[in-house]
Design a protein around this nucleic acid. Structure first.
Lengths: 342, 342
DNA sequence: ATAGTTTACTAACACGCGTAACTAACACGC
DNA sequence: GCGTGTTAGTTACGCGTGTTAGTAAACTAT
């Protein structure tokens, strides 16, 4: 490794000023007068020498790391299936870069909670974006109590921790209402994940709301749990098909799970949407190109990531947010898995 | 933010020793004798006070950041479609964590090369894993010349930069050979990306090799380019179907693109694999659950990521690697898109 | 008993930067 | 001539850690 790194001392020497002056100029420190001439000279020399301040030195002196931690608190399977998360990450990265922040990635398997505490105790990051928060996460609560700045991707019920999320309940409600409006009365749901996940709960509630609004009664046998995988959708759908009175439409709260469920229907020799209508959730890239193309709820992943980051940075700057949470609206994209094309 | 951070000074005071002793004990510095009694006392106190060394201070003193940069040098579309990358990232993260390293994420849009140079010039990272290297990347060459430690995910032809990759050529060869063995003589290819990408070139070469070995001549009209999206597969397949003499089998060098191509075949009223056989590449989660399930090449994404990280850390430690590159073998997963199920 | 060696630690500097406190020169009003 | 500002910087300290050189005591060896 080249060891001739340029320091502010080098710049000072080359510009014929003190090191402090360099620091003042480059950080635009107000309250200290520097003539335009020297100011420009310092800037020129810095550029010419290709100076960039050492992050460690800066961090040590200022106490700020200019880095946020992105903690992925979900199992690998969950993430693999989830192209959504990639979008979110890109949004976060873009927003962070815009403000001169870096993003430190940290995966934490929920099954093996070695924790992410040290990220902040080592002063590696100024704040944390936590994806996949669980309400039974003791570490999270402790960190919040200690005053660590955290932004959740997703929600924890009955908590005041700031978050950014999609309005999952309303989105699910909208999706199921679409099926109701098509005349379906026997509508099942396959959740995206175990109901211990808030996101799964919310989507189920949206389903319930839509049924209630339509005057339909909830049939417990029509509620099945998925677990992020196509295989779980396949299995759940087979159970639904085996019912004495199978549904005529299914809301699957995850596209990936939905594709598995649709395969089950095809395997049974039935047709989509004539025999079984489908609405998914996520709008993954393949939804549009499945056979038949999948009606689904499009999530603004990129925007969600950007907003999460922007809000965390606001929190870091001002210590407070005007409102704790922010919910994104979603769009229902209607394709031929729910309506027969003309 | 709580400001009562514990420093090594606090630990020293509480243990009744000097700060230097604390540092020596916690870092297991050899060559300096510390009695077992004090050694244990320091360790106990450190644990009790929940001490964790400030990363900035450590970084400044040692010159090592214990952080590697993961630079994603590819367009968002490319990544969105690519669940493979998520696996790789997880592998990298796991390996890094195992060795006490952190991973800094940095997305660089190839179209807007603001660069990732500052990552290392600011001394933020000790080394870089670069995903999606392009041979026309001037910044990459400059960094390598400056002695920055870089590990490529993928290859650059005729270069000595260390890399980890899958053996794409042999994998593609294997995939096409499978089609040959099924008796196909008119075999087309749809690439995963523009041929300016090395990965696309390699897969094309594998295709050519397999044809040559089988004594088949390459038909230029049978070579089409995809661009990571299902839509590109759909379009390419439509062109192939419109040929006077369409192929009877297609090797699509990306599962996502393949699913689009298969949709085109279905739209044309043809059957898979009777009228058109398919082999994909990647083994995405959905490949197994498509209709029909897609024969494809399974890539060891997680292992690839781990290996990339391990090798970079070796490079950081010893400055040299025994061999510059490492290639992973792949598995062909045969499903019913290429062979009719009995 | 004394010189030499080992043991157990500490003092002190360096890393690169931010910034509060200080200085030195000069201008101005009276 | 003198106090009061203003301008244009500089000095000096602190951030928390790693590490080398050094020291004081205890323990040999003769």
């Amino acid at each position: 490794m080249t060891n001739n790194r340029v320091t502010s001392h080098d710049v000072a020497q080359a510009a014929g000023v003190s090191r402090a002056t360099v620091s003042v100029v480059l950080n635009n420190l107000p309250g200290i007068a520097i003539s335009d001439a020297t100011r420009q000279r310092v800037l020129d020399v810095a550029k010419q020498l290709n100076y960039s301040p050492n992050s460690a030195g800066r961090k040590l002196a200022s106490g700020k790391s200019n880095t946020i931690g992105l903690v992925l608190h979900q199992s690998p399977e969950q993430v693999y299936a989830d192209a959504f998360l990639t979008r979110v990450m890109f949004g976060i990265e873009q927003a962070a870069m815009k403000h001169g922040y870096h993003v430190l990635l940290k995966q934490v398997d929920p099954a093996d909670p070695t924790g992410y505490r040290h990220l902040v105790s080592e002063n590696h990051v100024d704040g944390i974006i936590l994806s996949g928060p669980r309400q039974d996460d003791p570490e999270l609560l402790r960190l919040v109590e200690e005053g660590v700045h955290i932004m959740l991707l997703g929600q924890i019920p009955d908590s005041t921790i700031p978050f950014v999320d999609i309005d999952a309940t309303r989105s699910a409600e909208q999706a199921v209402r679409h099926l109701v409006q098509l005349g379906h009365t026997r509508i099942a749901i396959i959740t995206n994940a175990s109901l211990s996940y808030t996101s799964a709960q919310q989507r189920l509630i949206g389903y319930q709301n839509a049924l209630e609004q339509a005057g339909l009664t909830l049939e417990p046998a029509y509620v099945k749990e998925g677990n992020y995988t196509p295989g779980s959708g396949l299995a759940a759908m087979n159970q639904l098909l085996a019912l004495p009175q199978p549904p005529t439409a299914v809301f699957v709260a995850s596209d990936v799970v939905a594709l598995g469920a649709m395969l089950a229907v095809k395997n049974a020799g039935l047709h989509i949407p004539q025999d079984m209508a489908f609405v998914g959730f996520d709008d993954i890239a393949l939804a549009e190109f499945y056979d038949p193309p999948l009606t689904t709820v499009r999530l603004p992943g990129y925007k969600l990531g950007m907003m999460a980051c922007e809000r965390l940075l606001q929190l870091l700057k001002w210590g407070k947010l005007s409102q704790p949470g922010y919910l994104f609206e979603t769009d229902l994209v209607v394709r031929s898995s729910s309506v027969t094309t003309p």
